[in-house]
Computed example of a mutant assay.
Amino acid sequence: MPQTTLTKDQWIALFQAIGLDAETMWRWHQCFEARHPDQHQSFLEWLGIPAEEIQRIRAG
């Protein structure tokens, strides 16, 4: 059965492929969290990130 979601590492690789550095990726997450917190939570879950890591990411 084909994989239907991306992993965190695959997502990061896509960001890196378009030239985003770690700081820019972090700002993207901060903006996502500030503007759309519920959707950000869903996105992080969709990536399969464990709950403890999601809490750290969202806490900034």
Rank of each mutant, 00 (worst) to 15 (best):
S42M: 13
Q30C: 06
S42V: 03
C31N: 12
I57R: 14
I18T: 14
R58M: 14
D9T: 13
R58V: 01
T7S: 15
T5D: 06
M1D: 10
R58F: 00
I49P: 06
Q3D: 12
A51H: 08
T4V: 14
I12P: 00
Q16D: 09
F43E: 02
E53L: 09
Q39D: 11
H40Y: 10
T7V: 07
I49W: 03
W11V: 09
S42C: 08
I18W: 09
R35C: 07
H40F: 09
I57A: 04
A22W: 07
C31R: 12
T5H: 14
I54R: 15
L47V: 05
Q41E: 13
F15D: 04
D9R: 06
R35F: 06
A34M: 09
R35A: 07
R56M: 08
G48V: 04
A59F: 02
W26D: 13
W28K: 08
E23W: 03
K8T: 06
Q16N: 07
R35G: 09
Q30I: 01
T24W: 02
T7G: 12
A13D: 14
W26M: 05
I49F: 05
A22V: 07
Q41F: 07
H40T: 12
P50S: 12
P2K: 07
Q41I: 05
A51E: 14
W11K: 08
H40G: 02
L20Q: 10
E52Y: 04
Q39V: 03
T4P: 00
T4A: 08
I57K: 06
H40V: 00
D21K: 13
D9N: 15
W26P: 00
K8S: 13
E33F: 05
R35D: 10
L47A: 06
G48A: 08
A17C: 01
D38Q: 13
A22L: 06
D21N: 15
D9V: 04
I12Y: 08
I57T: 05
W46I: 00
E23F: 04
F43H: 07
M1T: 10
E23A: 10
A17N: 11
M1Y: 10
P37E: 10
D9Y: 06
E53P: 01
G48W: 03
L6H: 08
W46P: 00
T24M: 09
F15W: 15
Q16R: 15
A13I: 04
P37C: 07
R35P: 00
